[in-house]
Nucleic acid binder design. Structure first.
Lengths: 344, 344
DNA sequence: AACAAATGCTATATCGATTTAGCCCAGCGT
DNA sequence: ACGCTGGGCTAAATCGATATAGCATTTGTT
């Protein structure tokens, strides 16, 4: 059994008969700059790779202040959208030698604050944050630490920060217009109780489309459900809502989990999706693709979002910029049978 | 704007007019043991909380060798099963003050080795690993580092290690028996090309159930598909397989993603699930619950698995035990319409 | 009074890397 | 012979915490 401890720079120095300083210079590619001879340089490299030396990231981090770690805060890692995105970002970050420390907020501000704090004293180099309500103060404070912060999925309009989001307004507008074009006359929306921008935009896109298509709109066509309810309660609420509207012929669910609960609700009401009631949801999901009938949705370009976030972060890590970079990607409407019964 | 650096133990020491050592003792709860007076102790505590002192985990980790970080290696964080489990474990770990660094293997041994290495030189305190094929050597080496390792989802029969899994044999046996009891006569299985224990057990449970119910079995009833295929290829392969078997009346998919691809395949063949062909899958999924008809499955007790893993890990961190602890939980069969068309 | 024991705290080394300042030697010019 | 320059390397400080050893001072004992 080998020694418990890893190989340190000292071990290499000893074997090479040089000082740890020299080893550090060579292994950090500063051999030329620091005028270390070719001979010594090669010797050190050889020994290092023979011993499979890996620098202790804690020691390095302590000295340099860089941990090569990114803190990722999502709403819910068990949600397909966030999990898929997390995977893309993990892969992208890995390409740059970064690892990811993550946490889920459950859309709870206190949890989010706690996560930010933990990440901070773990000295992550940068943050990717799906903010919760009232997290604006903390985000501004974070910015003052000179560690890059990129918001995702949503942002604070009054806070100047980097972010990568999709055009929620347009996505909602487009899918609602599609429903209108399909001939649905009375369209409702189910969203969550949240003043956050992504939800606001989706709701506004929805209402704008109704207006543009001269369809009726009233507050009674909008249902807001608190995020933290149990599954049971979600479907109960949705059922109550849907049955409360006379002449309702289509409904748009503003997130993937609402779509899922919504399908459950509609089915338990015994309504026939597509024929009897048009359905669309934000976000795509295996369930939407394979449900019978399949469910129309606004799909977010997950790989592109993930790549943009990490790319932006890396640029900020390498050359911090004064101006915030704000990237808005286009989601796409995927038309399926739930809004177009003609489809197979 | 406040200073960029965090508060250190020295700042507190200065304010309290004592040495950093004393501060360290007090903040680590060793005041009594180290005979620090109540006065000084309280004063330090007060200053620390006023300054919102948080120890630098890098420095602490460097000195103590403990980073309060757990390395988590899953097959695919975008897979609902692993993502849900990751969330449970994250929550549980958090209760003990641990954070999670994660990575996905894609069932690729080289990726897994890379992840283990990265986690190692990031000095994680413990590992939760979903091993890939041929990772047994690395697991044994890890054990020699005296850092706890818990395998999940699968293990190596010839390696003595901690693990938490479900009884894959029994789960497969039970659901296959259920299919048999429902009157299906010719039942096939679709699994992945893998010699790993979890897949082996599922296959064996399946065949044993066929035998016990005097149903026909032959190699032609078993389809193994490589994990790394594209979605397209999966469904194509499954379609080819299903259509190749004369008189086939039921099929069991050995993982959740196979179940999903399988449903897609069967639907594109135009077969009627439940009536024309009985279907069951390992793992539960929103899609299985809400598909029409809903899909019978073997559900793993995800919260229980997650809790057991973290609990086991914590025990090992606190009191390392010589004997490996091996926990096998029971999955449960959820009978739905895909195998019981009478169900709503 | 003399010595031991307990009390209360601190100086210093350490973890493993990076960074700064600078030493020593050879070669060159004059 | 002397100073200057540059090449090639290293000593020591540092990051922020913890652990070890031990120094004063007070208290207790006989």
């Amino acid at each position: 059994m080998l020694s418990m401890k890893g190989i340190s720079i000292k071990d290499i120095a000893k074997q090479a008969g040089v000082s740890p300083t020299t080893v550090s210079f060579v292994l950090n590619g500063k051999a030329k700059e620091k005028r270390i001879s070719e001979q010594v340089s090669k010797k050190i490299q050889k020994i290092a790779s023979r011993l499979k030396y890996k620098p202790n990231q804690l020691a390095r981090g302590l000295r340099t202040g860089k941990t090569k770690t990114i803190g990722l805060i999502v709403e819910d890692i068990a949600n397909n959208f966030f999990a898929s995105l997390a995977k893309v970002m993990e892969d992208e970050a890995d390409k740059h030698g970064y690892k990811v420390l993550y946490g889920s907020t459950e859309d709870n501000t206190e949890k989010a604050k706690g996560l930010l704090e933990v990440l901070k004293y773990r000295q992550v180099d940068a943050y990717i944050v799906t903010p919760t309500k009232n997290l604006d103060k903390e985000i501004e404070q974070l910015k003052a630490t000179s560690k890059p912060v990129v918001l995702m999925d949503r942002y604070f309009p009054h806070v100047s920060s980097h972010y990568v989001v999709v055009d929620n307004y347009q996505g909602a507008y487009n899918v609602t217009s599609h429903l209108a074009n399909q001939g649905y006359k009375k369209i409702a929306i189910v969203t969550i109780t949240s003043d956050q921008i992504q939800m606001k935009d989706r709701l506004e896109g929805f209402t704008a489309a109704l207006k543009d298509h001269q369809l009726p709109f009233s507050k009674s066509l909008v249902k807001k459900i608190p995020f933290e309810l149990e599954r049971e309660a979600f479907t109960t609420e949705i059922k109550k809502f849907l049955t409360s509207i006379k002449g309702l012929d289509a409904v748009f669910f503003a997130t993937n989990y609402l779509g899922i609960y919504g399908i459950e609700a509609i089915r338990s009401l015994g309504w026939e999706i597509g024929a009897q009631i048009g359905v669309a949801s934000f976000d795509d999901h295996d369930l939407f693709r394979l449900h019978s009938p399949s469910i129309t949705c606004v799909a977010q370009p997950i790989p592109e979002i993930g790549r943009n976030i990490v790319e932006l972060l890396m640029q900020e890590l390498n050359h911090p910029s004064a101006a915030p970079r704000q990237i808005v990607l286009e989601p796409s409407v995927i038309i399926r049978a739930s809004s177009d019964p003609g489809k197979k």
